[in-house]
Amino acid sequence: MTARFLLAPATDTQITHLGRLWLYAFAALALVFLVAPTLLIIPMSFTGAGFLEFPPRSWSLRWYIAYLDSPEWRDATLVSLRAATLTMLLATPLGVAAAYGVLVVERRTARAIGAAISVPMMMPAVLIGIGLYLLYVPLGLNNTLAGLVLGHVALTLPYVTLLVLARMKSHDPRQELAAQSLGCTRLRAFLLVTLPQIRYAVIAAALLAFIFSFDEGVVSYFIATGTGATLPRRMFLSLQFGVDPTIAAISSLLMVLTILLVAAIQIIQSRGGPRRKA
């Protein structure tokens, strides 16, 4: 069975699986390189020792308790949760509206809008970070939730817009025309016909905006200090002073959150594709 698989052609040029074993091995190693380092943190975070080791010689929840007992970590977590929630709630409708606008205007205008919306994706985060910091100095917006959310909404808008736009493009525009001829205004046609069909992409975009904001560390490094510090900013400062096992606990929690959201997005996306007849 195995031998037959190995000798079966794997490509259009009749290379056998055996002839590509090196590729399989290489890809497996690459995937281990990508996934293993972060996953290893999870068991290590349960160590009972005062430092991290693998495998841990004793197990405890002491670093999770340390995290929850620390008012600084707790405050930073709350700031990040608030910012991520507000970013999601603002970026999603703005991104959906922008995607619809890009879809219905003439092509040259659409390209211009699309390019403008992609700008935050192309610009180095450090540059946006110092720019916002220097701009917020006279405006008094540094270390405020409003200032942070404004920055995060701008940073997440390209991702939200492009994700929703990609889904809208595979949606038959005649459906909205049909709805209008049947008695809908343009807005109602969108709400009653298009939105229910692209809802999974919209939810996925919202989750993406949430996690992006929650994990964002560069811009918030510059504009969210003191009591307004976000979780990633505190982690960054802590990392510069060495390997604090509390961060292992926080990282593990973040990993679990990320895995849940990625799984949710994957499930949502696989259910959300356009239904096509064979």
Binding site: L94, G95, A97, A98, Y100, G101, V102, V104, V105, T109, I113, A116, I117, V119, P120, M123, L127, I128, I130, G131, L132, L134, L135, L150, G151, V153, A154, L155, L157, T161
Partner: peptide, 29 residues
Amino acid sequence: RARMLGLALPALAVIGAAVVVPILWVLYL
């Protein structure tokens, strides 16, 4: 056309205010 462009306007305004203006500000300073 103005109504349809208006849909993208809020997004463009946010990006302008929080990305483009800060970069120009850096340029100026």
